[in-house]
Design a protein around this nucleic acid. Structure first.
Lengths: 228, 228
DNA sequence: GGCAAAATGTACGAACTGGTTAGTTTAGTC
DNA sequence: GACTAAACTAACCAGTTCGTACATTTTGCC
């Protein structure tokens, strides 16, 4: 490939324009790997292909990650971390419960929509029965807190007498996830079967509204549905 | 593919205990292939492995299906056909709209639950952006009629003044599919992240009820929700 | 029985693919 | 400036995997 010698010979700056950049190399490999795995699956992705798209080499992949599966797990961890970090930006602390719930659903819908690569990684992981996710405590730690938001909202809504009392926050989370996840995961087959581009802006706008609507109608008490 | 002449030949025996059984061989291969593809994905499945589990041989796979991808498409077609045939058994023609809708959701929930292999095939096909489904007009034909039920129910419900008027049958189908599909497709990661077996009978019973509930609340007019 | 076509069995090979061996360069330290 | 560990390169290898060439049997038909 390109000659590394020419890039940085005389070194006198502490600024890391270093020829050897372990962390950068690592990160670069993971990013490329995530793309390839998300596109082709675990067995479908090719180490040589990943290596070629990297600024580094195949040898480096094995140097840092040990094996194809090791690389896959790292890519998966990275994907979860990235997405959960994005989710942390949602601030609904001060909001009244109904607005908060609406906001949460909208956010989840948009967030999933924007992170197709992540959705695909989760699909692939489910094809593998979640065996790699199981091996990674990093991921489990990242996720347990994921229902904190919905728990807080639900408690608030209950206290305000707005929400039904017979629901389980985890199940609400499940329903929201289902709608938002499916929207990305099954877009291809759905569009091709019904000859309609479900991913088009118009359709997405409509589905987004319907999804919010559906969740609110599900959680909010029937006699308080006036404003929805 | 297969020679149409041979089928219409005048057969001496109606019950052929033949050593050579083309149609049986074909079917046997497809069934095994479907299992393997559903388990390992397109690139993950191994032709030699499939052949070994068959009552036939690798030679026969190529004789009948030409290539790995050809076999995959046939397995996919078979999966869709099987499932759609099962769906055809749902009879809601004479039912009042609300009961019919409830029945449809329950049926879809159960049906997806019972056909994990099919769900996995669809997941895999989505990983491949539906490119093989696109090649098969067989599948498209099978599916276009899939929303017939929901269309009929919705029309009836509208006429009875029970349903909201601002919905699109395809979108209702989408929502139902999302909830029922996700229940199977993401069970592994969901269970492992939250340390709860979402596939357990208790949890499934609960989710089933919630799903029906959610759809009904979504479709039925707020002022007619009393009986739900 | 003889025949052509369909169906099937066996063995093999070329290309691919995950992983490794052996060696080189770079960066910081004394 | 010599030294060492970390970072990196290039070539290579062994097992796998899709697919095929060739030979053989079975079947329906006259």
């Amino acid at each position: 490939m390109s000659n590394p010698v020419s890039t940085s010979r005389s070194r006198s700056r502490a600024t890391p324009t270093r020829a050897q950049d372990p962390e950068g190399t690592r990160q670069n490999i993971i990013e490329v790997a995530a793309q390839e795995f998300a596109l082709n699956g675990l067995s479908g992705a090719r180490i040589d292909e990943i290596a070629a798209k990297t600024r580094s080499s195949k040898r480096m992949i094995y140097y840092y990650f040990g094996s194809k599966e090791g690389l896959y797990v790292s890519a998966l961890e990275n994907a979860y971390r990235q997405v959960r970090e994005g989710e942390a930006k949602l601030d609904i602390a001060g909001m009244p419960p109904l607005d908060a719930l609406k906001r949460l659903v909208e956010f989840t819908f948009d967030h999933h929509h924007q992170h197709e690569e992540f959705i695909r990684m989760v699909m692939i992981e489910n094809i593998h029965h979640g065996e790699f996710l199981e091996r990674s405590d990093v991921i489990r730690d990242l996720n347990v807190t994921a229902i904190g938001n919905i728990e807080a909202i639900y408690a608030k809504g209950l206290a305000a007498g707005l929400f039904r009392a017979d629901l389980d926050p985890l199940e609400i989370h499940w329903q929201i996830s289902a709608l938002c996840f499916f929207n990305v995961s099954n877009r291809a087959t759905f569009s091709k079967i019904f000859g309609k581009d479900v991913g088009s802006p118009q359709y997405q706008t409509s589905l987004r509204r319907q999804t919010v609507d559906m969740v609110l109608r599900f959680v909010v008490r029937a006699d308080k549905l006036g404003g929805v």
